[in-house]
Amino acid sequence: MTALVLVSVTLVGIAATIVVLTHRPENQAIMLSVFGLALTVMFEVLQAPDVALSQLGVGAVVVPLMIMLTYRRVRRHAGEAESAASSQSEQPSP
């Protein structure tokens, strides 16, 4: 097999490992975007332009965006719950 196929497939394997081993969700969202880009390059090298187009739109933009928005929503909700609990505990007991 040619060097290009070998390199692109190896890059996909390395990117997948890095995505899984990243700890924080916001870093994982960015790494997932890079993984989507590596997959797009590999799909192009394997002579599949339709699939590459599809993967680029979805895997590099839509899914990381949704993950980032979910994570920020969850963090804001946790912050609101914490501030509500602390303001309740500050009230004088009846």
Partner: peptide, 14 residues
């Protein structure tokens, strides 16, 4: 050409 409903729809939305 490479493209179609699925890919074009994603490009439009994003």
């Amino acid at each position: 050409t490479p493209g179609g409903g699925f890919q074009g729809g994603v490009v439009l939305a994003t």
